[in-house]
């Protein structure tokens, strides 16, 4: 069925008007405000202030460092789960149970999920008491309110996204390629490393991009898991908007975070692109 352009335009009218009014225009307002001072005159002073001393650059550095670590951790935990669901579990029932275990955390709020880790990582928490019982340490080690606890909390939030994205690509891989490799005498591990994993790379790229952008913009988990000792960009942005009411500087921080994130994503994609181009060139 083809919808004629006239009717298509009518169908799109209300949706586009709504998204323009409550998403596109507000977004432009932020960009414009970031280039204005408090009196409304055009100025770059807000951006100048970000780089005036080392405070915000170091916040930015912490944000990206924690995001990168939790993206790597989500990959290490999420990829095997996705592989297992798609290639190992045989029954549909088993697959459904696995998906329920992955999606259930996704359906609870970030606060509740962080709260679970507060209980687990506290001085009297399960993790510390297990470590003491096993004799790995003689007294509780400080786990909560450290950068480690932020990374654990973020990874916990992000793993389901990684699993779902990687699994959706693994599903589309032609099983006959794997069988061909096995028939030709390649070991299971070799087949995985040389056939399945390279073919699943688009899923890994997409998954890590989604997870990384979510980590960079995370507010709730770092606020709760840092105990106020570590500051990330989202916390600085909220501070400007919610506590100090400096919308112009807050806007510059928001735009700055967005631009740096987009640059990093572009670099990552460029790197991946060049690598696969090199690999193709080597093969031919």
């Amino acid at each position: 069925m083809r919808i004629k352009n006239f009717w298509a335009a009518i169908l799109l009218g209300v949706p586009v008007a709504f998204m323009a009014a409550f998403f596109i225009v507000p977004f432009l307002v932020v960009v414009v405000a970031s280039f204005q001072d408090k009196e409304g005159a055009w100025s770059l002073s807000n951006y100048g202030r970000i780089f005036a001393d080392t405070y915000y650059p170091s916040v930015l550095y912490t944000t990206f460092k924690l995001s990168l670590l939790s993206t790597a951790a989500s990959f290490l935990i999420g990829y095997p789960i996705a592989y297992y669901i798609v290639n190992v579990v045989r029954s549909r029932m088993g697959r459904r149970i696995c998906y329920i275990l992955v999606i259930m955390p996704l359906f609870t709020s970030n606060i509740v999920r962080s709260f679970g880790w507060i209980i687990l990582l506290g001085r009297q928490g399960l993790v510390n008491s297990t470590l003491v019982t096993l004799g790995l340490t003689d007294r509780p080690i400080p786990l909560l309110f450290t950068e480690l606890s932020i990374v654990i909390g973020l990874t916990y939030i992000l793993v389901p996204f990684m699993v779902l994205t990687v699994a959706s690509v693994l599903q589309t891989i032609d099983k006959s390629l794997v069988e061909a490799a096995l028939d030709l005498g390649t070991s299971r591990l070799g087949t995985f490393l040389r056939v399945t994993f390279p073919l699943s790379l688009p899923g890994v790229v997409a998954g890590s991009l989604i997870v990384f952008t979510l980590a960079v913009s995370a507010y709730v988990v770092p606020s709760i898991m840092s105990g106020g000792r570590t500051v990330v960009m989202a916390m600085s942005i909220f501070e400007q908007y919610g506590a100090l009411f400096d919308f112009n500087f807050g806007a510059a921080l928001a735009v700055g975070l967005l631009v740096v994130t987009l640059i990093l994503i572009a670099l990552y994609l460029f790197f991946i692109e060049r690598q696969s181009a090199t690999r193709k060139a080597v093969k031919s």
């Binding site: 998403f23 932020v30 989604i210 913009s217 989202a234 975070l257 967005l258």
Partner: peptide
């Protein structure tokens, strides 16, 4: 993919 916090800030402003 846009930070939700930026969407929220934009809407408040």
């Amino acid at each position: 993919i846009l930070p939700t916090i930026v969407v929220g800030a934009a809407l408040l402003q």
